[in-house]
Design a protein around this nucleic acid. Structure first.
Lengths: 169, 169
DNA sequence: CTTGACCTTGAAGCTACCTTTAACGTTAGG
DNA sequence: CCTAACGTTAAAGGTAGCTTCAAGGTCAAG
């Protein structure tokens, strides 16, 4: 299978597939005499796995270390470890988001709770003081928690990059 | 107040403060005859606001358009709009995270549910098929939802960039 | 023989948010 | 007067995950 065909099958762009190869993520690729890449049918499967793992919050780096060269032979322990850690990361993020959300809701309520006898400027001062004197949100998030987020978002931004400008035909 | 003093008060680095000025986020700055920046006490307050807003998931760009030059005179409607939208973004992300988490838990269960009479390779094949045939996770997340995440993570990654290499003294 | 669809490469660009570096001027204290 | 700590600038670098570009080569159909 040539790269364009693989791209169609997986829904990925050819540039993405080549990129994965460059960073050592996709190794099941051969060359025809003319230099063209050629893939076994299995490649589509692997790319599907990569995409799925990415959506679950794994970095390409993590995926690379977890993906066995032979799909039948996984490092069971490493995989389970990674899955468990990833879940913990997600939970930490969920806690953060809940906090942020609560914070914003509180702020909205605070703004709308302007006493009738108070003018806008004074209300602004009042709200401002509240915002800045709230406790510093002790979230206890470790650098490791953070890493997921860095991934998660990017994972989600599948729809980006496409939005820039439509191909001018 | 000079920039070092302001940095100490806010807990930000001087480079960050200068950066904020460069991108037009912090305008309350004057110069002494020697070229040094000098700030009114209010500046610390504004930086506090910026940091808080960032933690809540706003981009510096968003913050810039929302921050009034006079802290007493906010654009009430724009602010409320932004807050409301940001909450919606957070909710979308929460939904995604819940999905990812469920997905991972399911995967773990699936791996552990290997029938006694099945060998590892066969189990790997079985799980693999399950993973890849699950529905494509119809999440209906808009590009706008995505933007928050891009922010949220970075907001969280305060602890990064420091990790590279300690200053060699 | 030409057209168009496909393939190749390395390098540069993009995003958002900073930090780092180099090369230099200022100021307070001993 | 020297030194250490502070201040200044513009420009480049770093992250993660790609895309885009320039400048080609290959191939099948008409």
């Amino acid at each position: 299978m040539k790269i364009g065909e693989l791209a169609r099958q997986t829904g990925l762009t050819t540039s993405k597939i080549r990129f994965y190869e460059r960073i050592g993520l996709l190794k099941t690729v051969d060359r025809r005499p003319n230099g063209y890449r050629t893939y076994p049918p299995q490649a589509a499967l692997i790319l599907g796995l990569i995409t799925t793992a990415q959506r679950a919050g794994f970095t390409l780096d993590e995926i690379r270390t977890l993906l066995p060269s032979d799909l039948q032979r996984w490092d069971h322990d490493a995989l389970m470890n990674a899955l468990t850690r990833k879940i913990a990361d997600i939970e930490a993020l969920q806690a953060r988001l809940a906090q942020s959300k609560a914070h914003l809701l509180h702020l909205i309520a605070d703004i709308q709770a302007r006493p009738d006898n108070m003018d806008c400027a004074a209300n602004a001062r009042r709200v401002l003081t509240n915002v800045l004197t709230e406790p510093p949100e002790n979230l206890d998030v470790t650098p490791d928690d953070v890493r997921l987020l860095d991934r998660t978002d990017r994972r989600l931004s599948v729809s980006r990059g496409r939005s820039k400008k439509a191909l001018s035909p």
